[in-house]
């Protein structure tokens, strides 16, 4: 008898699994991009941000791919949660990420120094059925499930730009030259659209270890540290011409997060991450 009940129950559950997959946000942690009229604030401290409702997203240590976080000084990643807000005006979309970090690590002034950073992760494709793996996408060349990653790095903030090597991301305005790597000669930089627009890198990945800078750098941003808190905004036009970019329109998307604490020697996969959360664009 018991067996029968279990069987029937199981079939019901299985039906649920096969045809109606579990709701992505089993905890109801949804990010909503609030529609506003007027300009998107390019300052993380702008009062306009008060219009958006924040949500706290819990983060965990990245322990899926090596190198894992167990070998960090703390034995785990530092940041356990972030507060996320988003605004859009139909033309541009911006995200404000805030988290506690008692130490500002924004200068790579030592061979053993690491920076604070934050990244947003989006599936490039709009398909709701065939979502890339939240950890850097998947499929590599055979079956690419591309993700678009926007990474803000503290050391790329204004006034902290360093020499720009070939193949690095390029600070946008005014720079025409870079220094050739080994020959010590000046090199022409790529055209402006390929240069980084701010302290944010526009990247793609199709699996662990595949993160690559895009030819077209479209994301802008600004980060401010004060009182043990980072406030970082990342913003971009909702649509771009780049096929490798995520495109935003009213409706649903997925978003995932990652934060690095330089003081805990976090870099690469040694970071705090979340899985996919639903992003509703109003």
């Amino acid at each position: 008898m018991l067996k029968k009940v279990f069987l029937i129950g199981s079939i019901v559950i299985m039906a649920g699994i096969l045809y109606n997959l579990p709701e992505v946000n089993s905890q109801g942690l949804m990010v909503t991009s609030k529609f506003i009229k007027g300009d998107i604030p390019a300052n993380p401290r702008s009062p306009i941000w008060d219009k958006a409702d924040g949500i706290t997203i819990p983060l965990s240590s990245q322990i899926i791919a090596q190198p894992r976080t167990f070998t960090l000084p703390k034995g785990r990643s530092s940041v356990r949660g972030i507060n996320v807000k988003s605004l859009n005006n139909g033309k541009d979309i911006a995200f404000l990420i805030e988290w506690d970090d008692m130490t500002e690590n924004s200068i790579l002034d030592d061979t053993a120094a690491y920076r604070d950073a934050v990244a947003l992760n989006f599936p490039v494709s709009d398909s709701e059925k065939d979502v890339p793996y939240f950890g850097m996408g998947h499929g590599e060349k055979e079956d690419p499930h591309l993700v678009n990653i926007w990474q803000w790095k503290a050391d790329l903030e204004d006034g902290r730009d360093r020499v720009v090597p070939l193949g690095a991301s390029y600070p946008g305005e005014g720079l025409k030259y870079s220094v050739d790597w080994y020959q010590g000669q000046l090199y022409n930089l790529p055209p402006k659209e390929k240069q980084r627009k701010g302290p944010v890198e526009d990247l793609n990945a199709v699996g662990f270890g595949t993160l690559t800078l895009q030819d077209s750098q479209d994301v802008m941003g600004k980060g401010v540290w004060s009182g043990g808190k980072w406030r970082v905004i990342l913003y971009r036009p909702m649509t771009t011409k780049d096929k490798e970019d995520v495109q935003f329109k009213k409706g649903k998307k997925y978003i995932a997060f990652a934060v690095w604490d330089g003081a805990n020697l976090e870099k690469d996969g040694q970071k705090s991450i979340s899985t996919w959360h639903e992003l509703t664009i109003e």
Partner: peptide
């Protein structure tokens, strides 16, 4: 060696 000027 790590080059902190270039971050590489």
């Amino acid at each position: 060696y790590f080059n902190s000027s270039t971050g590489k």
